[in-house]
Design a protein around this nucleic acid. Sequence first.
DNA 1: GAGTGGTCTAGACCACACC
DNA 2: GTGTGGTCTAGACCACTCG
Lengths: 253, 253
Amino acid sequence: MGTTQLETAPEPKYWHLKTVLSEALDSEFAVGEILPNERDLAARFGVARATLRQALEQLELEGRLQRRRGVGTTVAPPRVGVAVGSAQGTWPGEVGDAWQPADCAPAVPPADVARMLETSADEQVHVVRRTRVSHGQPVAAELLYVPASSVAELSAIDAPSGPARARGVLRELHRLGLEGQDRAVELGSARADDAKALDRLPGAPVLVVTTRFFAEGRTAAVSVATYRADTCRLTFGDAGGVEIHHGPERQAS
Amino acid sequence: MGTTQLETAPEPKYWHLKTVLSEALDSEFAVGEILPNERDLAARFGVARATLRQALEQLELEGRLQRRRGVGTTVAPPRVGVAVGSAQGTWPGEVGDAWQPADCAPAVPPADVARMLETSADEQVHVVRRTRVSHGQPVAAELLYVPASSVAELSAIDAPSGPARARGVLRELHRLGLEGQDRAVELGSARADDAKALDRLPGAPVLVVTTRFFAEGRTAAVSVATYRADTCRLTFGDAGGVEIHHGPERQAS
DNA sequence: GAGTGGTCTAGACCACACC
DNA sequence: GTGTGGTCTAGACCACTCG
């Protein structure tokens, strides 16, 4: 019989589906447009809904789609560039930083943070909650851990918690001379409280930026900021925040 | 593994399962240890395999587990800190960089890269492939795009492609004075070729680091590096690569 | 070959947004 | 209400690793 061409195509359906959808997004849909619902799309492509969802999940992970329960699936705008700090470093709350202090309360930090702060395992520190908004959307939630030793002059008259306390802690922190900082980025999944602040479901993928602030020869504060991974592109360096637009195509080739 | 009752829980099963498993990993398993297989685990927790898998996927995303087809699910070691470049910036291939040049070939860059390089949409550039190894494991794959105008003196005698060509392109690049660089980090999913280099399945979550190198008043080269998101923590700043341990890690039990 | 994780199906019900 | 995405089930078969 004729030579049958080597098939060699164990490419998963959802992967192929993702490619097809990705190309359709580029050519046939505008940003913000609503896609057909998952049941219709699955039927149209002749696959089970679960398979279709696997493709959609990948596209959402890459920031191409946005899905909202009760609403539908929409085409996401390009990721926004979010400046994550200049090389020289600044204290949280100094002029020009994009964070909005929300609250402050004493708490025992997680073990890994306590290790960086060199506090004992059960020692309370000031925890300042802040959020960051870009283009009208919340993009990040932060917990800033400040040991009492870093804000020794903090007025005992101020309220023990609340936004006023948060401002007081930041103000006292600025009295220290910032000697340097250290940053790390990794992938994580949103805890319930962060998910709420970011308007996502728990478990949503986030970029976790851990910053250590050095002053007086030790770690004076630690910031753990969680950014929405679907909508954010973190930018570093002197030109941080500059417009580097990624086209509709970045991964497929 | 006691049967938790506590209804009134709009908390999804897989989420609760993830919490239970996470705590079990902290207290009952050592790094590298093999977990029971998915069918047994699902039966033990009284859920469908798909639900159990949803919990495992999250834990893998957080770098707690490693799953390999045909082998099993193992407890992952803590993420390795990978230095992603100092603030002052260096050219790719200068002394001390952790990349291994693998290959070089001419190709037309993706549209977004072409935009940064300010080359025309169909103009070929040198594409240097490099890989990065840490602790014996491949952690990143890179494509470095170098327009011909940045390496004008490149000897026409050299081979048009291959490792020797890669070294030649890097050498010529160093003749330019590096004026600055610009970096962005975002979440992506591994293309087929990157997945192979990283020993992962296509679609695996990766951290994409895009670096723009400036020289002579323009963008002299662009690097797109994809890091394994499950095993890597990207570190920035002067103390890059320093040990900052995250998470409840357990060495042995 | 046996055992593993990866893919896929065809249903079901739930939580949420909007009318 | 209706319609959406989110969760869950109980199977099936495939691709891979290893003895």
